[in-house]
């Protein structure tokens, strides 16, 4: 899974956006169905309000809203599902020559904007990620993270 922070000024076909969202919906969740999420894809000019705040141009913004869990463990499970939604979308995008930028640290300002664009209520939902999609330009983002692992037999 590769993450990009630069995209070409080229539109993404609506059918492609549909496929990406569909991939997101197949994220694992223990209580099927209904899954506790609402996925919003912003393809109109309003997406620029979000991308400007993140400082990255992208033709599509995907917002995986999750229902707020009453207790912390429930809420964290829903957030974990949002992680899986983001990964599924990234895998699907890569197979379509698209790339994604995933922002797991969504500021209150960006959240407020996304709730306002989506029309969803902040009382009921949380927004753990903002996902930008487009045709990637340049190399994948590499901030130097390494895997520390131990194999025990």
């Amino acid at each position: 899974m590769r993450i990009y922070n630069k995209f070409k000024a080229k539109d993404v076909d609506k059918d492609a956006v549909d496929v990406l969202i569909r991939a997101g919906f197949y994220a694992p969740y223990g209580y099927n169905p209904p899954q506790p999420w609402h996925i919003v894809a912003v393809v109109s000019d309003r997406r620029k309000e979000i991308t400007d705040k993140l400082g990255i141009y992208a033709p599509v913004v995907i917002l995986p809203f999750v229902v707020k869990g009453i207790m912390l463990p429930n809420h964290l499970a829903n957030i974990g599902s949002a992680s899986a939604i983001a990964v599924n979308i990234a895998y699907q995008a890569e197979s379509m020559d698209l790339g994604v930028y995933i922002e797991p640290n969504v500021s209150d300002e960006v959240k407020y904007l996304c709730f306002s664009i989506s029309g969803l209520s902040e009382t009921n939902y949380d927004l753990p990620f903002v996902i930008l999609v487009g045709y990637p330009e340049g190399n994948p983002l590499d901030l130097g993270g390494k895997l520390d692992y131990v194999i025990r037999r």
Binding site: P140, L141, L143, G145, L147, V150
Partner: peptide
């Protein structure tokens, strides 16, 4: 897994038990 950690360098360790 390392591809995920490259853009998201969190403290992380994976144990593979067999």
């Amino acid at each position: 897994v390392e591809e995920v950690l490259k853009p998201f360098p969190i403290p992380f360790k994976l144990y593979i038990l067999m």
